Amino acid sequence: MLTDAQRSTLAATLPAVHGALDDITTGFYRRMFAARPELLDNLFNRSHQKSGDQPKALAGSIAAFAALQLEPDARQQKFILDHIAHKHASLGVTRDQYAIVHEHLFASIVDVLGAAVTPEVADAWDQVYWDMADLLIESESDLYARAGVAPGDVWRDVRVVKRVQVSPDTISLTLAAMNPAESLPTFAPGQYISVQVELSDGAQQIRQYSLTGAPADPTWQFSVKYAGEVSAHLHEHSFEGDLLHVSTPFGDLVLPDDDLPVVLASAGIGCTPVIGLLTAMAQSGDERPVTVLHADRSRNRQPHRGQLAALVESLPNGQLFQWYEEASPHIVSDRVRVGQMSLSDIEIGDDARVMLCGPGGFLSAIRSELTDREVDDSRIHFEAFGPELLRTGAQ
């Protein structure tokens, strides 16, 4: 925990560190991958490193956590840490890896800020890092225990038993345990698994995919859009009978344990967590009001189009609205619209939970609309398909 003196130092230096965080995190990754190149090939997303998205996401999370030590907000801190902990658990991150990050992150801070990093400044920021790390380690240990695995021991080999084309550029894969007599572990609707594949250059790259089947099924299902090196590899090399190396399911975008109204908004392949949530609700005969909003480029490229409509139709109080960038005039109606998703005439009750799934630009736009509608942050939950740029004051 920060002492009063450390908190004062943090307050005095936060603006300077915040302003330099992009340079600090970029230097951190450069240093760490130079010393430990296997981490880039076998743990971190190379595409997000190349684009700069991952350093920005790390910078955002550090800045958000540090700011929350000066103006505490328990709900916001829990939100940040839960998202990170679930992602770390799905990668099998362990306690010892935090020391590796600490070594290279603080070397980068000294590189960037130079003489400004006095012993007092180093001590305060060191405490912030380990406060955050200790909370994450504790949360991740709890996630591993609840999953019934040792810390980091999340990986298993499974067999592809079914492959279905669900849109021109999206496939659905069904996975089964290696022993046909066994079932794969259950999961909470909305959770995801990590999938690790060996690429042509020998790198073992990992990506996360949301589970779309029912938690009680003995198999797992997930969908893959042809985009990025891992997804392209799965399209080209994963067929019935092939093996995949996957993690235990994790993820905190799960169905609230109450009967309050739910609004589910997604874009593109972001429909997959929604499919998982709707499948569970349909099977249980969930009677809560459910409004499903989905945006896509066109109907012919929309993954799970028919399944989405059928699941909503099966709910006693479900309704579906869809937006397409490209659409023929004859399909346009009150429920099928042309253009970007807009919440302008969508009813969102004062007690509704709003769950968002999709790429960063979509999430930012919809969250801005929700803010304009004065929907409280505590009622907004989301799954970002890509590195998540966290910020204080909003999810």
Rank of each mutant, 00 (worst) to 15 (best):
D134S: 15
P316E: 11
I380E: 06
G360Y: 04
A327D: 07
R288P: 11
H237P: 01
L260E: 12
D126W: 00
L389F: 09
I24S: 02
G360R: 02
S368E: 12
A188N: 09
K162F: 10
V246P: 00
Q283K: 15
V224Y: 05
L70A: 09
A267L: 06
I100A: 05
V164R: 15
A122P: 05
P119R: 02
D201K: 11
F385R: 07
S172W: 11
I193A: 02
D296S: 15
I275K: 07
E313H: 15
G251L: 06
R95Y: 11
E120I: 00
V274N: 08
A34I: 05
L91H: 03
P329V: 12
T118K: 06
R156D: 04
E236F: 09
L68M: 09
I275P: 01
G148Y: 14
L244I: 06
T13C: 09
P168Y: 10
V158D: 04
F385L: 13
L264D: 02
G190P: 00
V121F: 01
A232M: 12
L199G: 09
P185Q: 05
A74T: 13
M132L: 15
E347Q: 13
T371F: 13
D73A: 02
D169G: 04
A265F: 02
T170M: 08
V312T: 06
G358S: 05
L81T: 10
I366R: 01
L68D: 08
G349A: 12
G148N: 12
Y192L: 02
I331R: 09
H83W: 09
P189H: 10
T94V: 15
T219F: 14
F250K: 00
L356H: 04
I269E: 03
T25H: 02
E38H: 02
V274T: 15
E140C: 07
A116G: 15
E71A: 09
E71P: 00
E347V: 14
W220L: 00
S231V: 07
S314D: 10
D377T: 11
N45E: 10
D111K: 10
H83D: 13
L70K: 09
A267I: 02
W130S: 02
F250S: 02
S47G: 01
G393I: 08
T279D: 09
A5R: 12
V17T: 07
T291Q: 13
G92Q: 08
E182T: 08
L343S: 03
A327M: 07
H330P: 05
E313G: 10
M32V: 06
T186I: 08
V128K: 01
R159F: 00
T94R: 15
C271V: 15
T3F: 06
L2R: 03
Q97Y: 07
V160S: 06
E198Q: 14
S51K: 13
A232Q: 12
S344G: 08
Q395T: 13
A267K: 02
K78A: 15
S108N: 03
F239S: 11
Q208F: 09
P37E: 04
R146T: 14
M32W: 04
E182G: 01
R146L: 12
A295H: 04
V154W: 08
H233W: 15
G19P: 06
R207G: 01
A310W: 01
V254N: 03
L105K: 05
S183T: 12
T170D: 05
H294F: 04
